[in-house]
Nucleic acid binder design. Structure first.
Lengths: 350, 350
DNA sequence: CTGAAAGCGCTTACAG
DNA sequence: CTGAAAGCGCTTACAG
């Protein structure tokens, strides 16, 4: 350590961290010496002594998908601004099953101050683990277990998309988005399906079971699902895909089948994926990176609250605590319809 | 700690880590108790005491691009297999400049055993910092400073792509890929441009300066570069884009201009991006995730070597060390031409 | 094979 | 405002 600079380690510690009880003069000297030696405090020792790590674990199921990597970026930038670093917890999937948080978290749990969980469907044992860890948790995409959450209004987004198709005169509309029961581990926003169904019902339109397709949310998933959907004798005049990646897959299959878009088939997605414009895809845009940023803020708040619970807890009568502070914060990001060329009126309505 | 289990902390430590000097019986008991208490050793304390952290920092310029997130996944999975965790060092870019490793590394440097650097153009001061840190470093994409590196043979890949176009009869070929001097911070594989030039020269074809375009390696970058390229009076009959994302942008612009592909314009890229097939894009495939995995392996080797340098160093005469061990390992991943519909013979050759 | 002791590099009350 | 002391939870030689 840099005590060779003339003072005690305690003073160095205080000076470098900007704590109050140091004279300006001493602080300046310490800072200068530290700079010259390019000294950096060891975070491990600091966290051992202080109990805080300044690290946040981010649990993410698919690092390589646009949505997840974008959320991650947003969160990372926000957290870094406050001096936090991101430790990756990639829930790589092996075949149809994914690695469990039960295996993933142990090397991480004592190294982080909080956990950010992106759209993961948690098993009961995983939830139990998370609770036992007693770390602040924030989720993105789908509310879970009463933890604070950042997401969009999936019902409204799906409703907007569905209405858009209905307004064009479509009646035979298919939905691609994953029957929740089929999804192994990603917590799909099942509200999107609910929004679709509700909007169809409100317009007096039937939803055919064969036209509600489970899909793994990837481009290739969209390709194969669309093949099933569009090759039958009866085919819909429009498809609402719950993600742009699936929608792109649908467009690809439609093109291979010689279907004209939007005359023979309209397609709408959700996301406004960075490549959606290449396919002239109409979609519901959501601010993905911003959601990550908001999640980062929520997490910072949660860490602060966990660090100083006595601030407004101990000083008040016991009953006071729960009513105000306990409400799980639910932040809803705005969405908007992005009109492009993949939707239009059906060529032979009805 | 779980010494409530009957033995000393030292024994617990040895038992749980599988060290030799413990009886099978004791070990079993300790493991059981630890399991019941769901005890996990604190990595911070461990690293403080042992000097090893089991964490690797990954420096990545663009988290949201397919290439980088795929490499990251590959590396992460490989590292996790050996008990290592990934700490993210995202070099977010602010406008035309990026945040410096000088700011990024301090919170990370004492927390990691090694550093993986993905295609980043390092400034002299950053290189100096990296050297001073004395951590094992491995790079991906572009060899740097003699550190071990995983990449593809960029010259060969570019040569294959260029030859492919020439074989179709193209003579007027443009290159999109970033003049190295224009690139602020990503270490573009300038070998690709070199490979292009060499192959053109070998066929006696001229390379026009206006047809070698700097580009930021994104889809939108490809769109705008192509607009510049294809609107002029003189336009090439083929474009070789150094990445699929740029190539997709070119295809988009070509379509808007009413050019037929491949009759009016052939386009080839490099990557075999997961969405390349949607655009029927001919390309040079590279195994991206695998490269990440290989980089992870190299990093593990480097960590092991750093941990036990005396193993074959101290026991030999001094001169022995350098010759054999110092060679920087350079792993080259294979590439292959993926033939799709975006390339063909020009409609009016010559 | 096992335990007692020292120490990793910080931070945190506690005295001055 | 500053320093001396204890301790964070492990690991590592060193004795038994």
């Amino acid at each position: 350590v840099a005590q060779a600079a003339g003072v005690s380690p305690a003073t160095v510690s205080r000076a470098l961290r900007g704590l109050p009880r140091v004279s300006a003069e001493t602080r300046a000297r310490v800072q200068q010496v530290a700079g010259e030696l390019s000294y950096v405090a060891s975070p491990d020792a600091a966290s051992l002594a202080s109990g805080r790590t300044a690290v946040v674990g981010v649990v993410v199921p698919f690092l390589a998908r646009w949505y997840f990597s974008s959320v991650l970026i947003g969160a990372e930038m926000q957290l870094r601004r406050s001096g936090f670093t991101v430790l990756l917890c990639h829930v790589g999937n092996v075949g149809r099953t994914r690695s469990s948080l039960l295996d993933l978290l142990p090397p991480v749990e004592k190294r982080v101050d909080a956990l950010l969980v992106l759209s993961l469907k948690l098993e009961p044992r995983e939830v139990a683990l998370l609770r036992r860890l007693d770390l602040p948790v924030v989720t993105v995409g789908v509310p879970a277990e009463g933890w604070p959450c950042v997401r969009i209004d999936d019902v409204a987004a799906a409703s907007t998309a569905t209405s858009h198709l209905i307004d064009f005169g479509h009646r035979d509309i298919a939905y691609l988005g994953g029957d929740p029961s089929h999804d192994v581990h990603v917590a799909t926003p099942s509200d999107r399906l609910a929004g679709f169904r509700a909007t169809m019902a409100a317009s007096g339109l039937p939803v055919r079971d064969e036209w509600v397709l489970a899909c793994d949310w990837t481009v290739t998933g969209g390709v194969t699902a669309a093949a099933r959907l569009l090759c039958g004798a009866q085919r819909p005049s429009a498809v609402f895909a719950a993600s742009d990646e699936m929608a792109m897959g649908v467009l690809h299959t439609a093109a291979r089948l010689g279907l004209r878009v939007p005359q023979d088939l309209s397609v709408i997605g959700i996301d406004d994926h960075e490549m959606a414009f290449l396919h002239d895809l109409t979609t519901i845009a959501q601010p993905v990176q911003t959601q990550g940023q908001l999640a980062g803020e929520l997490l910072l708040e949660a860490v602060a609250a966990a660090a100083a619970p006595s601030a407004d807890g101990a000083s008040r009568p016991d009953g006071w605590r729960s009513p105000a502070g306990r409400e799980a914060r639910l932040v809803t990001a705005p969405t908007s319809l992005v009109l492009r060329g993949s939707t239009g009126a059906p060529s032979c309505p009805g």
